[in-house]
């Protein structure tokens, strides 16, 4: 097994999914919103980046739009597009609470997925957009893959810092108050519905940015990358890491990606054994999930750390 390569991949993909997990943590643990359609915001970021940076169509290309703008424009617009998409989807759904919100966001993401599958002119249908622009290249002696891992990690760190700053501010305090007792928070002057909507919008931005980085990394924006499975992976990461702590959420993301990559990197003699390994991976993820929910090890560690300080 090629460990250095594997660790670099884990660092990159783990950071990307870490960002999405953090956003989910903000929405769920602070805003009380269950978003089962998070993959859609991720996909919007990826497609936006691809469309903004790809060259205009020529020859046999089926897609209709390509702006050929620089990577940073695509990157920023990916965040803005995710924000816009959150505004669009949040407006009708955020009146709903709990499992109803979970169902509608899930439905939204499924609709968006079939839109991507069937719409040829924007996203090139099932084939998707390939050869997505990869900005970094080698930086002097530093190989491209390291630059990439660094960029993804940077996005994660910036997202983490921004969220922490926000949550430590009066704004975060107001969110805590709403989570503790919404009625009392309203009578203390907190516009709880508006603030929940703001959290939904703010947290979509890094998800869109992460989608852009994911598209750069894989050089692809295609529907098969953005199935409900992504949503579930991120949710599992969140639950694994303990929903109450941002570090736990990140740790969960890295742990899960590491596990997946290890299984993927195992050498198999036959197709059959690879298939079995894939199923075993799912089973183990499930068992792990149940075990963590049952024993809540991360919450326990956190409580111990708290108690000792």
């Amino acid at each position: 097994m090629n460990w250095p390569q594997l660790l670099i991949t884990v660092a990159t993909i783990g950071s990307i999914f870490g960002v999405v997990t953090l956003a989910l943590n903000l929405q769920y643990a602070r805003g009380g919103m269950i978003n089962f359609g998070i993959v859609a915001y991720f996909a919007v970021g990826a497609y936006t980046y691809a469309i903004i940076t790809q060259p205009p169509p020529k020859g046999l290309d089926q897609y209709a739009f390509g702006l050929d703008w620089p990577w940073w424009a695509g990157f920023l617009l990916a965040g803005i597009a995710a924000l816009g998409f959150a505004a669009l989807t949040g407006w009708p759904t955020l009146r709903l609470r709990g499992e109803y919100l979970a169902l509608t966001t899930f439905a939204f993401a499924e609709v968006f997925h079939s839109f991507l599958l069937n719409e040829r002119r924007i996203g090139n249908g099932t084939v998707g957009l390939s050869n997505v622009h990869r900005p970094f290249g080698d930086w002097g002696p530093i190989e491209e893959k390291y630059v990439f891992a660094g960029a993804a990690a940077l996005l994660l760190i910036v997202t983490l810092a921004a969220f922490r700053q926000l949550l430590a501010s009066p704004y975060g305090r107001a969110l805590d108050a709403i989570r503790d007792d919404e009625v009392a928070a309203q009578s203390s002057g907190k516009p709880s519905a508006d603030m929940r909507r703001q959290v939904f919008l703010i947290s979509a931005v890094p998800v869109g940015l992460a989608g852009a980085v994911y598209a750069m990394f894989t050089t692809l924006a295609q529907p098969s990358l953005f199935t409900a499975e992504v949503t579930f992976v991120v949710w599992i990461a969140l639950v694994l890491g303990g929903e109450r702590s941002v570090y736990g959420a990140m740790l969960g993301a890295f742990g899960l990606v590491f596990f997946e990559e290890v299984v993927r990197a195992l050498p198999f003699e036959t197709v059959r054994s690879a298939q079995i390994a894939a199923s075993v991976e799912h089973i183990i993820t499930g068992v792990l999930f149940i075990a963590v929910l049952r024993y809540q090890p991360f919450d326990r560690i956190q409580r111990k750390v708290r108690a000792s300080t």
């Binding site: 009066p170 305090r173 107001a174 805590d176 108050a177 989570r179 503790d180 007792d181 009625v183 009392a184 928070a185 203390s188 002057g189 907190k190």
Partner: peptide, 18 residues
């Protein structure tokens, strides 16, 4: 109805922000 997971001072600080 208090904000039970917040401190005494935070309970009072948070409601000044209107």
């Amino acid at each position: 109805r208090l904000f039970n997971n917040m401190t005494v001072l935070e309970n009072v600080m948070v409601s000044q922000h209107c």
